[in-house]
Nucleic acid binder design. Structure first.
Length: 201
DNA sequence: GTCCAGGGCCGTT
DNA sequence: AACGGCCATGGA
């Protein structure tokens, strides 16, 4: 089945997913999205929501506050997201980078070309390809396709298998309209479908 | 009790 | 380049 047809099929079944879900900073969501993208690494979103709520409660959903926050306080909020020591460190590194280079503003960062922006994110400790691309697509509106474990399982169903992340990415991007909106919706639909074990594909 | 969640880093081969 | 171990909580 064609990749774009799978998208249409999933859309008909699951409808618009409205990603990325924003709970708090709706007027300036890019930072919250980036934090969520780091927190949800190999972790159920439900557990991340508790952390976001705690961060918001403690007025920690901004770069400067996280930079200043003592580690043991950050640990408390992050515990429910798992890997809380690593992820606390990741948030600190991300916030320091953002504050030092872009005045704490994601919008300044997103002025860069996508390739330069992607490389810069990947050079940060704690941000790999999926997290970088989630930030670029969902926080920055860049036209880049996010690959995750559900995407690879979907590919397996059609006996499509690669070694590298970027190969999966090219596979999808080359078979779809070059549209951030479609990339956005498709990845979210793949996650929705993956949670059902891709049973309707 | 086991397995998995909207991964990524690091050391060894 | 490839592979395994590690990180850690919470729900099914």
């Amino acid at each position: 089945m064609e990749i774009f047809n799978i998208y249409k099929k999933l859309f008909k079944r699951y409808g618009s997913q409205n990603w990325w879900p924003i709970a708090y900073n709706k007027s300036n969501p890019a930072f919250e999205i980036s934090v969520g993208a780091i927190l949800t690494q190999n972790t159920a979103w439900k557990n991340v929501q508790k952390t976001l709520a705690c961060l918001h409660r403690n007025e920690l959903l901004n770069p400067k506050a996280i930079i200043k926050c003592p580690l043991h306080i950050l640990h408390k909020c992050l515990r429910s997201s798992g890997y809380y020591r690593q992820k606390s460190k990741k948030l600190k590194i991300f916030c320091n980078w953002l504050n030092n280079n872009y005045d704490g503003k994601m919008l300044k960062f997103f002025r860069k070309t996508m390739k330069a922006a992607r490389k810069e994110l990947l050079d940060l400790w704690g941000i790999g390809p999926e997290t970088a691309d989630s930030i670029l697509l969902y926080a920055g509106g860049k036209t880049i396709f996010v690959i995750d474990v559900y995407t690879k399982r979907l590919c397996e169903k059609f006996e499509v298998k690669f070694k590298e992340y970027e190969q999966y990415q090219k596979f999808f991007e080359s078979r779809l309209p070059k549209s951030a909106k479609i990339f956005n919706e498709y990845h979210a639909l793949i996650v929705a479908s993956g949670k059902d074990g891709h049973r309707y594909i």
